[in-house]
Simulated scan of single mutants.
Amino acid sequence: MFQIEIGQGGEAVVSGALLISSIEDFYKELAKLFNDGNCSVLDLRGVTEIDTAALQVLIAFKKSLIEINRNVDLIAGSSIREVLGLSGLTKLFRAA
């Protein structure tokens, strides 16, 4: 299970496991936080597990932001950066 909180700098801080069982909720929470225009940083340093479904959500999320001409900076720990690199997703997100 995951949790998203707003950090002191206004970033969306994600912690826990991003797995297929809660992926719909993950996308809805991201959309709610970023569509209002106040958030532009996604902090994944607290993510303990990530599966293919979560990677697909990150792609869909990025695509939805591109459609409204917004960008997102991504902060990730070494294990998540490795997964993003192996999947080619580091090219989609600016590193913060």
Rank of each mutant, 00 (worst) to 15 (best):
52 T>P: 05
63 K>H: 15
53 A>F: 06
87 S>L: 06
71 N>W: 11
67 E>G: 13
52 T>K: 10
71 N>R: 14
69 N>Y: 14
63 K>I: 14
45 R>F: 10
82 E>D: 13
77 G>R: 05
44 L>D: 04
50 I>C: 06
61 F>D: 07
78 S>K: 13
58 L>T: 03
81 R>G: 09
65 L>K: 07
80 I>V: 10
74 L>F: 02
73 D>F: 14
70 R>L: 09
75 I>P: 06
86 L>H: 09
84 L>G: 06
58 L>I: 01
75 I>D: 07
72 V>S: 08
62 K>F: 11
62 K>T: 09
46 G>N: 04
72 V>Y: 10
82 E>F: 09
77 G>C: 11
57 V>D: 11
55 L>C: 07
85 G>W: 06
73 D>V: 10
59 I>P: 03
55 L>V: 03
74 L>I: 03
55 L>Y: 03
85 G>F: 06
86 L>F: 09
65 L>T: 01
65 L>Q: 11
72 V>W: 10
43 D>I: 00
60 A>T: 12
54 A>C: 01
86 L>E: 10
68 I>K: 12
76 A>K: 02
80 I>L: 01
59 I>N: 05
57 V>P: 07
86 L>V: 08
48 T>A: 14
44 L>F: 05
52 T>V: 11
64 S>A: 12
80 I>Y: 00
49 E>W: 02
69 N>R: 15
88 G>H: 02
64 S>P: 05
67 E>V: 10
46 G>Y: 04
54 A>L: 01
78 S>H: 12
59 I>Q: 05
72 V>E: 11
73 D>A: 14
62 K>E: 13
63 K>A: 15
66 I>C: 15
74 L>R: 04
56 Q>V: 06
54 A>M: 01
59 I>V: 12
53 A>W: 06
52 T>A: 13
65 L>R: 10
86 L>M: 13
53 A>D: 07
75 I>W: 09
85 G>V: 04
73 D>W: 14
44 L>S: 03
57 V>W: 10
86 L>A: 09
81 R>T: 13
55 L>N: 05
83 V>C: 02
49 E>P: 00
87 S>G: 08
51 D>G: 00
64 S>G: 07
50 I>Y: 01
